[in-house]
Every structure is written in structure tokens, then in C-alpha cells.
Design a protein around this nucleic acid. Structure first.
Length: 944
RNA sequence: GCCCGGAUGGCGGAAUGGUAGACGCUACAGACUUAAAAUCUGUUGGCCUAUAGGUCGUGUGGGUUCGAGUCCCACUCCGGGCACCA
């Protein structure tokens, strides 16, 4: 027997696969299809890393498995090669990005081939290839045609030293990562895509995606941030001007005590002549404008703003005159960029109101507890008594059964008001009477079940806040029996927050002591015709009453689709001196990126393309007059938003994808990649797909039916692999030392595919030993054609076929591998093994360790190529081996295990259990209360 | 602050509400060897004990259940994402 030499074997089979084009896509339409895709790589100069190998191995195993199961499989890859890193690299090393990308691609391709991925390389695509980006540009023109692409001035983050625009990743805090200068904002003309027009469908259709992780769908929902509310107009007092606010809480309109515009709101300038503190306003606008988003948010919760002196808005509900502020906590790009502020029922408005000393008007009465049937109405009070000397609060400890820790509560009796009730209850229950009322709450509607009385109650409670002014405590004897039920305790705020679990009492505490405002829904008060309504009802009625309209808004913003960069797809637009914006005619596509020597930033913020007059200057396709080309390029996201469609028909120069072929292969059945793409890439691609669906180019609503998320590979110690820490593992070294097959198995065996796990080079030896043991098994193959292994081995073999198949379907590669290890141990314990069993083991192993399996397949004399072989089938009747082991529990504890034939009856088991000496010794003379039998698993005895 | 995950031996991890720790690594002991490596065999959660057996044990505290790593409630810690979203 020859030694297992991975270097020889892996090269040999990679050559065979390449020469025979083994993994060319099967176009036999009689077979079911499976389109298996991983998120294609960005070919960086760093080369392939272990994380790539993890994703690509998983999809490769799945693809090979599907082929063996009779599917026609599309499993391609390509290069997402436009973007900033390549351009940076080019500037730094004076290498043209085209050259750098080609070099990097060559490295990636060599590395990927060395790991043995079964891609159909004939379908390789590259987003920077004009034949590819012709179609990216074509689709941009379609979006322009449909009114989805528009020009707009948008702020970019700008480094005044580097004279270049920065992405968020280029920022270190609020400063440029490269030179350390504090970044500014600069308004640039941008192309923007109206993705918001698809927001609703992007949310709705998440329901189609049954095989996406819930966490991805939730992340998309949050990113899109759908919110239902009302738009309501506020007139400016004494002027023919108004602004619109967006609110989800129209029910609180009567509680609005001021309004806020975002500093960038266009009405501010229109009001200039009437604003008496214009200088102050201007200065605030300037400061807010200079702040980067990071600065604006890193200042914590401290609210800032400026009142527009001389300006009042009219509350359309009650015609109150409200002050108008500008403040940067109101964002220009969300809702309408203006809010009505209701400090009594919104945390931010409350903070702002406190700081600027604005009135706070309660219009919602809280509802606590849960509404029950047949409730009895009551009126009561909850009193908080605080000792200002030590901050402690008076409480009654009723014990676990009677409500636990509470403050002082009680029913309002005839002839009493809330205050007199509270004073009486405090005196009766605690003996304190030297107190002073400092606050009274609104009515609180509390629903609860009074266990002592056996009735459901709906009480209208009033909270009262007292301060202790004297320590005199007089207890009268007639109250003693009542007082025996509880203990009077002074507790700290922390204890009160933790121990008082009753929602009503906790609410009153939060209101008075923690100064919390009530932001939930409730029942309206102080809202003339609407008082007594629920929030839900009032939202609609009040909106209607003031002539507003119900409106859905999204957090999702339109997609800024241009970059002032060289290395991207040119936006196919021409600016004509007389016709204005003219799209490049389809016949002139692609607009090829010119080959230039310099691609440094221009210093004006414009794309380097702007400095190439022979490219920029052109003739208008419409009138023939002088015109200039658009010099902005597309973002890196553009190509990756539709590349999966091009794999279906990568060489087509008539269409981005042939209609028939699209129907044959779309959609992607399994898409594998990282959770960092849960929002942007996947939302952009889903949007793009829906746009193409509307054009009739694709036949499905969604591009990716199932999504498998990969977990990070961390370095030892659970930290991220990074160049800086010098802990990056290069897959080349592992392939050289242990072999690609070992690397593949190691990465799949590390842990659950979707979970992060730490690289541990010394553990790689385990998978390598496993392969060595399989290698040695070939010596045990019996020459006797009719040789059969023991029943036990047959059982394990069948179990393994079942488990590996099921686990691969579910991307549970780690447990599939451990089951194969169990099979190998079992086969090793046999004197000899059959040719058939060994072949089946190789077939199970082949998706995981393809070179290794091919070699052994050939060595043991199989005629047909392994890649034409089919996945083994297990025999249902041989999964159990005819025996069952029954665990015996007594009072829930394992006391015995007994083995039976699998056709054993419950009575036989019971008899054997009762006769077991060990069981008898546990039962002794105790009575058996009951027995429970779980078929084929366990027998449980419960003793009295 | 909000959202989403997670917590099981020395380590990576396994476990349809039913024998916790499969499988692998490490470590220890033994075999082979002049020796080492490799390989093979055995042991490897703690404690008490004889290798029988017992007892504790899946981040913490409660609960449901004959039975909880798994379900429910409250909390702690760790990781990831988002950032004043009206």
C-alpha cells in the first residue's frame, strides 16, 4: 500500500477535473435544478483567507452532494472587483487597478483551485469587465427611464487635507483615518436611486423567504424601519405658511406644547424676515451642519436647540400658539423633518422641555396590568412616602402570597378624596402622619385579579407623592390585627425598583422618583371631544379632525448611487449644454472606463475622470451639440446587486440574461455568506431583482430562496484575525502541509457552520488522522465478493448514510463528519470489510474530501468515474440492529439500563424492570404512584 | 439605549422535554522502538470510593414537569448589528 501523499493526489485530480471539465454545468433539463451560490469574493491583495475557505467549502460540499443526488447544479463564482481598496492600492503602489485586480484574481483563482472547489469556471465573471458592466449600465438607464434614478445634492464626508471624499470606514471617530484631520461635510451632486419606492415590497416579501434565518429578516425589517403614523399640518401664526409633521402619536396632539424643525428644514430660511434672533439661528445651523453624523450622535443625550423668536405655530387641534425650535435631534431625512413635541409622553421631548423650561401637559392616562373579563370598578390611591433625609421610601412587605413588596395603597371611601384617603391609609398602616404632599398623578387605569377576594378589578388609581417632615410614628391599637399581615420597611430606590413587582405601584414609583414619562398607549384625557377614547382609536379620529392623513414612513433612505472615484462603472449619462441630462443610447454601451495613468483625487471632490478632457468632452446624442460625460462612477454595490443573474448566461451579448435560461435556473436555491451583508447587499440585490421583475426580465419575486449564514473564523483566543495582530492563517500553508482535503474537513468540523469559532492549528491533526485511517481501511477489503460485515457494522453504515445526507441538507457538516468518524472506527473493528461498504464510505466522504475519495475510488478498482456515481441509499430496516436499550428512571433519576429486542412489548419491559435487582433495591417497600413508558427509550417509576 | 445571537469538561463542541459531555484536540499511562517521532491500546467533569456504586454538575435565581442543557419568568456576563427614527 502506498502512503497517503496529499501533494501528489490533489494536483493529480485537480488536473483531471480541469482537463475533463468535470464540473461544467449540467444542462439536462429533465433533472431538477439547484442553483448554489456563495457571495463572490472581493479579490483583495491579501489573498484567500480561512473565512473564504469555510464558505466555499460548505457550498461546494452541498453542490457535490446535490449532483450525486441527481440534480443539475449551477455552482459558479466570480469577482466583485470594483471599489475603493483597489483604487487605494493603485495610488499607493503606482500600479493600475486593472493590473492589480488581474494579479489578485490570478492568486485567488490559484488558491481556490488548490482547495478543490467544483465551480464551473467557464462561467467566471468579473464586475470590472466591460462585457459585464455594460449590463450594469443598461439597468441604470432603465432605472433612469422609470424615474427611479435622479440627481440630488447630498452631503458627503470630506477630508479637507486629503481633498477627497471619505466613507464611514475611512473615519477614525470624526477624523480622517489617513491624515487625522477632522472631517467636514460637503454638498455634492449625486445620483440617487429611489429604493424607498420599493420599501413596502421589500418588507412584505420577506414572508416569502421561509428558509432565511429569522435574524436576517429582522435586521432587514429594522433597516427599512416601517412606521405607521399621521401627517399633520401646523400653520405659522399670522403668516400664510405651514409645515407638516410626521407623528405616530396623533392621539397626543392636545399635549403638544412646542414644535421642532430640523436645522436643515427649508421653512427656516423662508421665515428669515420674521425671526428676530436670526444670527443665533444661523449659527446653530452652521454648527449642526459642520457636525458629522458621528459627532452629532456621540454627544450623548444632551439636547441642544434654538427657539425661532417671533414665530409661533398653531396647534390644529386646539388653536394654541406653540413656540417653534430648531434642534438637531430632529433629523431632516426622516419623516417630514419636523415634529410636534409632546414632552409628557416622549422621552426626548421631555428632556428637551426640561432643559428649555417648556410646559408639560399630560393627555394620556396609563393603562397597567391586563384587561380581564367581568371586572369590578374601584377607585383607589397609591402613596409614595419619601424621607428626604436619606432618600428611602416607605413600603409594606406583604410576603410572597399577598403581592410582595408594595407602597401604601387603599380604596377611596365615600366622602374622601385621594389626598385624605392617602393620609388616612398612611396613618393606619404605618403610623406616620408628619407628611407633606408634593405631587399628584393622573388617573391610572389598572387591571388585576384580586386573589384574596377572587374577583377581577379595574381600578382608577391616583398616585400621590409625600415627603416625610417628622419622624413621629403613632400606632393605634385598633389597627394591630390588620398590621400583622405586613411589615413596615424603609427601602432604597434600588430595592424599590427591584422588589416592587406590582405594575401599578412600580409605575407610580417610576413617575415620582425616577421622573419617567409615560410613552405607552392609554386613555385620552384633557382632549376635549376625544377624552376617554383609547390611543388606537384617537390616532385615527384626531388625524381626521385636524385634516391630516394617515401615512407610512420608512427609515430606509434613497440610495446614493454615485462615487467621485475612478475605479467603478461610469454612470452612462451625458450632460448636454442645451438638452441637459441625456442618457447614453443603449447602442453606445458600454461606456468604457478610460485607461489612464493617474487616478488620484482631483482635489475638487469630483471624480478623477473629470480631469480627462478627451473622455469627458463629447457630443450630445440628441442634438449633436457640445456635451460632457457624467464623471461619477457607481458604488461597489452595483455589480453585486445582480451578478447572480449573469452566471445563468454569462456570455450573452444581446441581453443581460436569456429569458428561457433565466426560467431554467432562477432563483438561487441556496445563497451562502456572512451576516455583515444582512442589510445592505441583500437589500440592494432584492430591490434590484424586484425592479427587474417589474420589467419582466426575471420571473421570480425574490432572488435568493434560502440563505445560509457563515460564522466568523476567529484567531486563537477568540479575537479577530487581523494583519495588525499578525495572527492571520494562510490557507496555502495548510494545503501544503496537511492537504486541501484535511483543511476542508477541519473547517467544517470546527463547530456549527453558522457560529463563530476559533482557529486552532494543533486540532487540524484530528481530521488528518481521520483520513489516514480511511486510507488504511483499503487493506481490509475482502477479496470475497459475498463478504458481509457484522450486523452492528451494517447498522452503523446505514445510520451514517442517513445522517450524513440529512446533515448536509441542513448545513450541519460538523455532525456529519463525526458520524463518519464513528463509521470508520466501527469498520476498523472488523477483521475484513466488503468492497461495497468501503465504496459507500468513499461516496459519503467525497463531497468533503474530493481528491482523497477520488484517489481511493480509483485504487480499489472502480471503473466508472466517481463523479458519475450516485449517493448511497440506506436501508430503513437496518437502522436499529434489532435491539433497544431502555433507560430506567426512579423519581426522575437514572438507576438502570436494560437491553431488549426491538419488538419487545411494554408488559415485557415492565416485568423485566420490576425484576431487576437494582430497581428492587431502590423501590424497597415504597409504593409506586405511577409508571411512564416512552416507547423504545425509557421507563420511569414514580414513588410516593 | 434598542434589536439579534450566545453561555455545556483543560479546549472546539454533541444532545426530537427522556442515559449530559457524542466526535475531535490536549493531557496521562501502556505497547512498539536502542531512542525519538509516527502509530496502536486504555484513561481523561468534580467529589466520596474498590475498577461496584453513590453524589454534585450545562452562567445565576425562581417556576412548569414523573423527568429540564432543552420550555416559562427574572437577572448576569460575552459577541454582533443599529444609533436621538418622532
Amino acid at each position: 500500500m502506498e502512503q497517503y501523499d496529499h501533494r501528489k493526489i490533489e494536483k493529480k485530480w485537480q488536473k483531471v477535473w480541469e482537463e475533463e471539465n468535470t464540473f461544467a454545468t449540467d444542462e439536462d433539463l429533465s433533472k431538477p435544478k439547484s442553483y448554489i451560490l456563495d457571495m463572490f469574493p472581493y479579490p483583495s491583495g491579501e489573498g484567500l483567507h480561512t473565512g473564504h475557505v469555510k464558505v466555499y467549502t460548505a457550498s461546494d460540499i452541498y453542490a457535490r452532494y446535490k449532483r450525486m443526488n441527481g440534480f443539475r447544479v449551477l455552482h459558479p463564482t466570480g469577482w466583485d472587483a470594483f471599489g475603493l481598496p483597489a483604487e487605494r492600492f493603485a495610488i499607493k503602489h503606482k500600479i493600475h487597478p486593472r493590473v492589480a485586480v488581474d494579479n489578485n484574481v490570478a492568486t485567488f483563482k490559484r488558491q481556490m483551485k488548490s482547495v478543490g472547489f467544483s465551480y464551473d469556471w467557464e462561467r467566471e465573471i468579473d464586475t470590472t469587465d466591460p462585457k459585464f458592466y455594460k449590463w450594469t449600465q443598461w439597468m441604470f438607464l432603465k432605472m433612469y427611464e422609470k424615474g427611479l434614478a435622479y440627481e440630488s445634492y447630498q452631503p458627503i464626508v470630506w477630508c479637507p487635507t486629503c481633498q477627497t471624499g471619505l466613507s464611514n470606514e475611512d473615519l477614525e471617530g470624526n477624523a480622517c483615518e489617513i491624515c487625522g484631520t477632522v472631517a467636514e461635510k460637503k454638498l455634492m451632486r449625486q445620483w440617487v436611486i429611489k429604493i424607498t419606492e420599493y420599501a413596502d415590497r421589500l418588507v412584505e416579501d420577506l414572508d416569502i423567504l421561509k428558509d432565511w434565518p429569522e435574524s436576517f429578516k429582522e435586521a432587514e425589517r429594522n433597516w427599512i424601519g416601517k412606521s405607521e403614523g399621521s401627517e399633520i399640518d401646523f400653520k405659522i401664526d399670522g403668516m400664510d405658511k405651514k409645515f407638516t409633521v410626521f407623528t405616530t402619536r396623533a392621539d397626543t396632539l392636545f399635549g403638544a406644547t412646542y414644535t421642532v424643525l430640523s436645522p436643515e428644514h427649508k421653512l427656516v430660511a423662508e421665515l428669515k424676515s420674521n425671526i428676530t434672533n436670526w444670527d443665533e439661528v444661523l449659527q446653530y445651523q452652521k454648527i449642526a451642519g459642520e457636525k458629522t453624523e458621528i459627532e452629532r450622535t456621540s454627544e450623548g443625550k444632551e439636547k441642544t436647540g434654538v427657539k425661532l423668536e417671533g414665530i409661533f405655530a398653531i396647534n390644529p387641534a386646539n388653536q394654541d400658539k406653540l413656540p417653534v425650535f430648531i434642534a438637531d435631534y430632529v433629523l431632516v431625512h426622516y419623516g417630514t423633518g419636523a415634529i410636534m413635541a409632546v414632552p409628557a409622553h416622549d422621552d426626548r421631548d421631555y428632556e428637551f422641555a426640561k432643559k428649555f423650561n417648556l410646559p408639560i401637559k399630560v393627555v394620556i392616562e396609563p393603562v397597567t396590568g391586563e384587561v380581564k373579563e367581568n371586572e369590578e370598578k374601584r377607585k383607589s390611591i397609591v402613596a409614595i412616602v419619601r424621607d428626604p433625609k436619606n432618600g428611602k421610601i416607605l413600603s409594606l412587605n406583604w410576603g410572597e402570597k399577598f403581592g410582595g413588596q408594595l407602597f401604601i395603597g387603599g380604596g377611596i371611601e365615600d366622602g374622601e378624596n385621594a389626598e385624605s384617603t392617602a393620609i388616612r391609609e398612611i396613618k393606619e398602616e404605618t403610623g406616620y402622619s408628619e407628611i407633606r404632599l408634593v405631587g399628584t398623578s393622573e388617573t391610572i387605569h389598572h387591571h388585576y385579579f384580586a386573589h384574596s377576594k377572587g374577583v377581577a378589578r379595574n381600578i382608577d388609581a391616583i398616585g400621590l407623592h409625600f415627603e416625610l417632615i417628622g419622624n413621629k410614628q403613632e400606632l393605634t391599637s385598633q389597627d394591630e390585627s390588620e398590621r400583622g399581615k405586613f411589615k413596615v420597611e424603609w427601602i432604597t430606590e434600588e430595592e424599590a425598583e427591584k422588589k416592587v413587582s406590582d405594575p401599578l405601584h412600580q409605575y407610580v414609583f417610576q413617575k415620582f422618583i425616577k421622573n419617567k414619562v409615560y410613552t405607552g398607549n392609554g386613555i385620552l384625557t384633557e382632549s376635549p371631544d376625544f377624552s376617554g377614547l383609547s390611543s388606537e382609536e384617537a390616532k385615527i379620529k384626531i388625524t381626521k379632525f385636524v385634516g391630516g392623513k394617515m401615512k407610512t414612513t420608512y427609515k430606509l433612505r434613497d440610495w446614493v448611487f454615485s462615487r467621485q472615484r475612478y475605479w467603478g462603472e461610469p454612470i452612462p449619462i451625458i450632460h448636454c449644454e442645451s438638452c441637459g441630462v441625456v442618457p447614453v443610447p443603449e447602442k453606445d454601451l458600454p461606456v468604457v472606463l478610460p485607461d489612464v495613468k493617474a487616478y488620484e483625487p482631483t482635489g475638487t471632490g469630483e471624480s478623477p475622470l473629470a480631469d480627462i478632457p478627451e473622455w469627458v468632452n463629447t457630443k450630445c446624442p440628441k442634438c449633436g451639440g457640445n456635451a460632457k460625460r457624467e464623471t461619477n462612477t457607481m458604488p461597489q454595490w452595483a455589480g453585486s446587486s445582480w451578478y447572480y443573474l449573469r452566471f445563468i448566461d454569462p456570455k450573452n451579448d444581446k441581453a443581460l440574461v436569456d429569458e428561457k435560461k433565466e426560467k431554467n435556473w432562477s432563483p438561487v436555491d441556496v445563497y451562502v455568506g456572512g451576516a455583515e451583508h444582512a442589510t445592505r447587499h441583500l437589500i440592494y440585490a432584492r430591490f434590484w431583482h424586484k425592479f427587474l421583475y417589474d420589467l419582466g426580465i426575471v420571473s421570480t419575486k425574490e432572488p435568493f430562496m434560502r440563505l445560509e449564514s457563515v460564522g466568523l473564523i476567529l484567531a486563537g483566543g477568540g479575537v479577530k484575525m487581523s494583519k495588525r495582530l499578525g495572527n492571520i492563517v494562510n490557507p496555502d500553508e495548510i494545503v501544503e502541509l496537511y492537504g486541501a482535503d484535511t483543511l476542508r474537513i477541519y473547517e467544517m468540523f470546527m463547530g456549527p457552520f453558522g457560529q463563530a469559532s476559533a482557529w486552532d492549528t494543533k486540532s487540524i491533526i484530528g481530521p488528518r488522522r481521520f483520513l489516514e485511517r480511511v486510507w488504511k481501511l483499503q487493506e481490509k477489503i475482502s477479496s470475497d465478493e459475498n463478504y458481509t460485515e457484522s450486523d452492528n457494522t451494517i447498522m452503523v453504515l446505514n445510520q451514517t448514510i442517513k445522517k450524513v445526507g440529512e446533515d448536509v441538507e441542513e448545513f450541519k457538516f460538523n455532525t456529519a463528519i463525526s458520524q463518519m468518524m464513528i463509521l470508520v472506527s466501527t469498520l476498523e473493528s472488523e477483521e475484513n470489510i466488503s468492497h461495497k461498504s468501503f465504496n459507500e464510505l468513499l461516496l459519503l466522504l467525497s463531497p468533503f474530501a474530493p481528491h482523497f475519495a477520488e484517489e481511493l475510488w480509483e485504487i480499489v478498482g472502480n471503473e466508472k468515474s466517481m463523479n458519475k456515481a450516485v449517493w448511497p441509499i440506506y436501508d430503513e430496516s437496518k437502522l436499529t440492529g434489532g435491539k433497544v436499550v431502555i433507560a430506567v428512571q426512579i423519581n426522575g433519576k437514572l438507576r438502570e439500563t436494560l437491553e431488549f429486542l426491538s419488538n419487545v412489548s411494554e408488559d415485557e419491559i415492565k416485568e423485566a424492570v420490576m425484576n431487576s435487582p437494582r430497581v428492587k433495591s431502590w423501590i424497597l417497600d415504597k409504593k409506586i404512584k405511577k409508571t411512564i413508558y416512552i416507547k423504545g427509550r425509557m421507563f420511569s417509576i414514580v414513588l410516593e
